[in-house]
Amino acid sequence: MLTDSIQAAAQRRGLSLETFRKVILRLLGRQVIYRLKSQRDRELFDAFLMLRESVTDYLEVMGVRLAVNEQGGFVIAYPPGSSVPGAEEEVLIDLGTDIQRRLKGEEKGLLLALRMIFEDTLRAGTLTDDGLAMTELSTVYTRYQQIVGREMAGNVTERDKSFDRLKRMSVIHQCGDIHDSESLLSITPIVEYFSLSSVTNALSDVEAGESLTPNLAASESTQKQNTRSSEEDGNVPG
């Protein structure tokens, strides 16, 4: 039986079937295991490396493929139909509790801003030893405004939610007080592995001179649509 084979492989490495299950559930539930995020993620990533062959084979049956960056200390699960880094085209993937979940508009703009800042830091050769891009929040806000054409929401709760969601996705590692423009934020290399098709299209619109933000006449309709989407998609786990 498959279970017996997996259990035997785990035991050869001093691990248990339960550990294998935890690795699988984390990848299917969160899509990312990032070693720097927490002690739990550190243990899961180390376990993944030891069980890599069994985990890969198990997920391939479902059409889920993995992108592994041992140096960066993370593994990402890509749902069926997604491209994996190194393939012909850039990855287009939605994140969340449900693999097909979409980010909200402000979170898309923030994701783009963080990705651009990371790429600028990478080109400048100033990443940290852990591969992180350090930047002041003022730089993030400025880049966001350049992309979206307006400032981020002044509502404290909404702004907190946007940053928290990207932190849960491990795009952000550490973040200071988001209301202090001089606070530092660290961006992980994971940001380069995630790009939503809707975000990419939105960037094209911006480059063509259009705004990422809906016009005022459509704002009420958009808000209702976002509410329905949130109810259908569920919440990102804590």
Rank of each mutant, 00 (worst) to 15 (best):
residue 39 Q to R: 09
residue 204 S to A: 12
residue 213 T to A: 12
residue 162 S to I: 04
residue 110 L to G: 02
residue 63 G to M: 08
residue 93 I to T: 06
residue 150 R to P: 00
residue 148 V to Q: 05
residue 98 D to W: 07
residue 7 Q to V: 11
residue 151 E to V: 11
residue 52 R to N: 04
residue 217 A to H: 09
residue 76 I to W: 00
residue 114 L to C: 03
residue 62 M to V: 10
residue 92 L to E: 08
residue 180 D to M: 05
residue 197 S to A: 12
residue 172 I to Y: 05
residue 91 V to Q: 00
residue 212 L to E: 00
residue 214 P to H: 03
residue 168 R to V: 03
residue 83 S to A: 15
residue 87 A to Q: 13
residue 181 S to M: 09
residue 86 G to Y: 02
residue 186 S to Y: 03
residue 32 V to H: 00
residue 176 G to V: 07
residue 136 E to R: 11
residue 233 D to L: 10
residue 98 D to P: 01
residue 27 L to S: 02
residue 87 A to Y: 07
residue 139 T to Q: 05
residue 113 A to G: 11
residue 75 V to Y: 02
residue 164 D to R: 15
residue 97 T to F: 15
residue 198 S to A: 06
residue 93 I to D: 01
residue 11 Q to A: 09
residue 179 H to Q: 13
residue 140 V to Q: 04
residue 208 A to H: 13
residue 20 F to D: 04
residue 84 V to G: 06
residue 35 R to V: 05
residue 114 L to S: 03
residue 233 D to W: 13
residue 236 V to E: 09
residue 178 I to F: 02
residue 88 E to N: 08
residue 93 I to Y: 03
residue 122 L to E: 11
residue 233 D to E: 15
residue 68 V to W: 00
residue 165 R to Q: 12
residue 47 A to D: 10
residue 150 R to A: 13
residue 57 D to L: 15
residue 184 L to H: 10
residue 204 S to E: 10
residue 175 C to K: 07
residue 97 T to R: 15
residue 106 E to K: 04
residue 150 R to E: 10
residue 200 T to M: 12
residue 106 E to M: 10
residue 207 E to W: 14
residue 119 E to I: 09
residue 118 F to Q: 01
residue 159 R to M: 10
residue 132 L to M: 06
residue 51 L to V: 13
residue 182 E to N: 12
residue 7 Q to E: 14
residue 71 Q to R: 09
residue 31 Q to H: 14
residue 172 I to D: 03
residue 233 D to Q: 15
residue 220 E to C: 05
residue 202 A to S: 09
residue 32 V to F: 01
residue 123 R to S: 07
residue 216 L to W: 12
residue 49 L to M: 12
residue 220 E to H: 12
residue 38 S to W: 01
residue 63 G to A: 13
residue 76 I to D: 01
residue 44 L to N: 02
residue 196 L to W: 12
residue 139 T to E: 06
residue 36 L to A: 03
residue 116 M to P: 01
residue 225 Q to A: 15
residue 206 V to F: 03
residue 63 G to H: 12
residue 235 N to Q: 06
residue 5 S to Q: 05
residue 233 D to S: 14
residue 223 Q to R: 14
residue 164 D to F: 14
residue 7 Q to H: 07
residue 52 R to P: 00
residue 175 C to W: 00
residue 200 T to K: 11
residue 177 D to A: 15
